[in-house]
Amino acid sequence: MRKNVLFLCMFFFLSFGVIAQKTKAKSDEPENKNIEKYLNDGRKGNSSNLVRLRLAHSLSGYYGASYERKLSNRIGVEGGLYGNFGSKGFFESLRSDFLEIGDKEEVFKVKSGIGFSLYPKVYYHRNKYLNNGYFLGLRYTMNKFSVESEYYTSPVNSTKQIVSANYNSFALVNGTHTQIASNITLGGEWGVIVYFDKYKDVKYSRTDFSTGLPVVKTETLRSGSALIFADLSLGFLF
């Protein structure tokens, strides 16, 4: 009896040993059906879609986002939509609170605005994805906005007016962006920008020194300049 028990025990342990050696987990088998799970390291993989928040627009008082999509290995197009809700923005604050008309400056206040941007780019390296990139682009921005200003109709009475204005700029930009964490990219751009401002039918008053009364004039104001420009962007890959 004792011998039989020992024999059974030995058989059990031996068979267990053989099973232990031969058992292979299914996860150990080579497989090619779902390799994405092995490549998932928390960072967004190749992505052709990127939404950006831009610093330059925000500092101009325009808040919004742009969306970029790679059309081919080399070409990408970014389009942006921004809104201004009565903010002059940091850049305008730096410049002045006045609108220069002739030899005088008039006080103005931005009421609202809407901005569009179109930004075709040529990437230096061929890649269908937007996780990283170094590019040359032509950035066109158009802002349509309204400003409020006052003009005097008599020495004691003033009238407020809403002036519709637009801003157009073209920038030749060298830029880059890189994936810094999970699905976030950080980008930097620099280049030369040419911009044109147009304020339509601005009414302003000038004192007629012979009568001592204000005379109301109307003028369409245009200005423009070329500047060296830089921008930073924070992007979200999806």
Binding site: N46, H125, N127, Y129, N131, N132, G133, Y134, T176, T178, L186, G188
Partner: peptide, 18 residues
């Protein structure tokens, strides 16, 4: 290796793209 050396000027970190 697409070593984006020009990025080095901005971030101080060159990176390698896929």
């Amino acid at each position: 290796y697409d070593l984006m050396f020009k990025n080095y000027l901005i971030y101080g970190i060159p990176y390698i793209v896929n």
